[in-house]
């Protein structure tokens, strides 16, 4: 495992960025947004991961130092919850915009939605 899991996360990140940059269909772009966000969330969880780690809850009869030596880092998990909520709202907004764009243009294809010069 070790470095490989980080490489796979990085690959997932690149797939997301590729979909955002290269795809022309609004739905595929939104899927790219989702993949990109999952990759980042996965990276955050991995940062706090520890092989054979225990849940970061103090059991009866154990000292804090013993727990700290074995538990996974709980902070990135808290961050990921926030990040998931932010990702959800961004995705919802993107879907809403895509629906409105479909109403106006009758297509999801970015090649046909091209009034602006960029």
């Amino acid at each position: 495992m070790g470095i490989a899991i980080y490489m796979l996360t990085f690959l997932l990140l690149l797939i997301g960025v590729y979909a955002l940059v290269a795809k022309k269909n609004l739905v595929r772009i939104i899927m790219g947004i989702a993949i990109l966000e999952y990759a980042v969330n996965l990276l955050l969880v991995l940062v706090g991961y520890r092989r054979d780690g225990t849940p970061p809850i103090l059991p009866r009869g154990q000292t804090a130092a013993e727990l700290a030596a074995r538990a996974v880092d709980p902070l990135p998990q808290a961050l990921v919850l926030t990040s998931i909520v932010i990702g959800l709202s961004v995705t919802a907004l993107a879907v809403a915009l895509a629906v409105r764009l479909y109403d106006k243009y009758g297509t999801f294809d970015m090649n046909d939605i091209r009034n602006l010069r960029g």
Partner: peptide, 14 residues
């Protein structure tokens, strides 16, 4: 407006 907002959102997410 919708087109600009969508492009802005995509780059904002990146």
């Amino acid at each position: 407006e919708l087109e600009a907002a969508f492009k802005y959102l995509v780059l904002g997410v990146v």
